[in-house]
C-alpha cells in the first residue's frame, strides 16, 4: 500500500562552530490520507528539523542531509528539483509555523498574501483569487472578511494571524498540512479556537495533518497517532490510545508522569525526569535517554536499541522491549490502579 508520506532512515546534521550536531538520526515514519499525526518531544529533539526537511527548508549549509528518503505520493522529495519542490509546496503541502509574524509579509495586505498562491498554483484570475481569499478569511472564522482582506498583519491579533496562516496554507486544498507548534504562542481560549478550526477543516477536506506540539493535552484531543522524539531519534510511535494507555518507552512514561492530573481533588507529587536533555554534539553512544533513565542497563550505555515492533501500529526504541531484558513495571498515571509491564518473561 502506498502512504501519502513516507519517510525512511532520515539523517540530518548541522555543521556548527561547536562541532557537528546530529539533529535527526535514523527517523522513519509515514502519514496516511486524512489522519492527524502528532510529534512530541523535548526541545531540540529534532521535531522542527524533521518537518522542515519535508518542505525542503533545511538550509544547506550548515545543514547536511546525510541520508534517507522522503516520499510524497510516491515521489522522492529529497532529490526533487527546485521547480518540482515549489509546485509541491504551493499546492500539495501547506505549512504553519509557531510564530505567524515571522512568516507573514509585514508590508503586504493579508488578502493578497492568501490570493498569491491561488494565482500562481491554481491559475485563478485576480478577481477569482480575491473572491476565494475572502471566502477563506471567512472560513477560518475572522469577522468582516472584505474589510480584513485589505489590512496588514500588524492589525491582526496573534490568534487571527495564526488563522490567516491557516487560510494561506489551506487555500490550495493541500493533501498534507504541517503545523509546527501552531498554538504554542497563543492563550488557551484562542488555542481552542485554532484547534477547533483545524479539526473542522480536516474533517471537511480530508487533509492529513502533522502536528508538532509539546502539549500532551493537544495530542490527546486531536491526533490519531503520535510520534515521540528524544535526542534526534524517534523513541516511540503509537496510536494515541496506546501511547497514553500502554506506552513502552521510559521517556514517554516520564512525560506522562510529569503532567499534573486535572481530574479529582487529591494532590499527588509530580514525578519529574531527573537530569538534563542530551548534548547533541556528542550524543551518548547508546540510547540517548540512558543518562536520565531510571531503568538503564549496561547495554543501554553501549549500544543504540533497535526499533522494537510491539504490534503493527506501535514501536519503541528501548532495550526493555527485548525478550532478554528484565521485566519492568511502570507506575501509571492515567488510570491509577493500572500498571504496565514491558519486556520479556517474568523472572520470578
Amino acid at each position: 500500500m502506498n502512504h501519502l508520506l513516507e519517510v525512511n532512515n532520515l539523517e540530518i546534521n548541522f555543521k556548527t562552530y561547536g562541532g557537528e550536531v546530529k539533529a535527526v538520526r535514523d527517523v522513519s515514519f509515514h502519514v496516511d490520507k486524512g489522519e492527524v499525526v502528532a510529534i512530541v518531544g523535548e526541545s531540540g529533539s529534532g521535531k522542527s528539523v524533521t518537518v522542515q526537511s519535508i518542505m525542503g527548508l533545511i538550509p544547506t549549509p550548515p545543514g547536511v542531509i546525510k541520508g534517507g528518503s522522503i516520499k510524497f505520493q510516491g515521489k522522492e522529495l529529497l532529490r526533487a528539483s527546485k521547480r518540482e519542490m515549489r509546485k509541491v509546496k504551493g499546492s500539495k503541502i501547506g505549512m504553519i509555523f509557531q510564530d505567524p509574524m515571522t512568516s507573514l509579509n509585514p508590508t503586504m495586505i493579508v488578502g493578497k498574501q492568501i490570493a498569491e498562491g491561488l494565482i500562481t498554483h491554481q491559475k485563478l484570475s485576480k478577481q477569482e483569487a480575491k473572491k476565494k481569499a475572502i471566502e477563506m478569511i471567512k472560513q477560518v472564522g475572522i469577522p468582516n472578511p472584505e474589510e480584513r482582506y485589505n489590512q496588514f498583519p500588524h492589525e491582526f491579533s496573534g490568534g487571527m494571524r495564526q488563522r490567516v496562516m491557516i487560510a494561506i496554507a489551506l487555500a490550495c486544498n493541500p493533501e498534507l498540512l504541517i503545523a509546527d507548534e501552531p498554538t504554542t504562542a497563543l492563550d488557551v481560549t484562542i488555542q481552542a479556537q485554532v484547534l477547533e478550526l483545524m479539526k473542522k477543516l480536516q474533517k471537511d477536506t480530508q487533509t492529513a495533518i502533522i502536528l508538532i506540539t509539546h502539549d500532551l493535552g493537544v495530542v490527546a484531543e486531536t491526533a490519531q497517532r503520535v510520534m515521540v522524539m528524544y535526542g534526534g531519534i524517534m523513541v516511540e510511535s503509537a496510536t494515541v490510545f496506546d501511547l497514553f494507555e500502554n506506552p513502552k518507552h521510559p521517556y514517554t512514561w516520564g512525560l506522562l508522569n510529569s503532567i499534573p492530573n486535572l481530574e479529582g481533588t487529591e494532590k499527588k507529587q509530580l514525578i519529574p525526569i531527573e537530569g538534563s536533555p542530551p548534548d547533541l554534539f556528542s550524543p551518548p553512544k547508546g540510547c540517548p535517554f540512558a543518562p536520565r533513565c531510571k531503568y538503564a542497563m549496561d547495554i543501554c550505555l553501549e549500544e543504540m536499541p533497535g526499533d522494537y515492533q510491539i504490534d503493527e501500529s506501535h514501536s519503541a526504541r528501548c532495550w526493555l522491549n527485548d525478550s532478554r531484558a528484565p521485566k519492568v513495571e511502570m507506575p501509571f498515571t492515567l488510570e491509577k490502579e493500572k500498571t504496565v509491564t514491558v519486556g520479556g518473561e517474568s523472572i520470578d
Binding site: 469577522p143 491579533s157 490568534g159 487571527m160 488557551v188 481560549t189 484562542i190 488555542q191 481552542a192 479556537q193 484547534l195 477547533e196 502539549d215 500532551l216 493535552g217 493537544v218 495530542v219 490527546a220 484531543e221 486531536t222 494515541v240 490510545f241 497514553f244 503532567i259 486535572l262 492515567l334
Partner: peptide, 20 residues
C-alpha cells in the same frame, strides 16, 4: 478550553469563545 490529557475524554463539548 484546557485540552484533556486523556484521549478517551477528548471528545467532549467545550465552550469556544468567539473573538479576541
Amino acid at each position: 478550553a484546557i485540552p484533556k490529557t486523556n484521549p478517551r475524554d477528548a471528545k467532549r463539548e467545550r465552550i469556544v469563545l468567539a473573538g479576541d
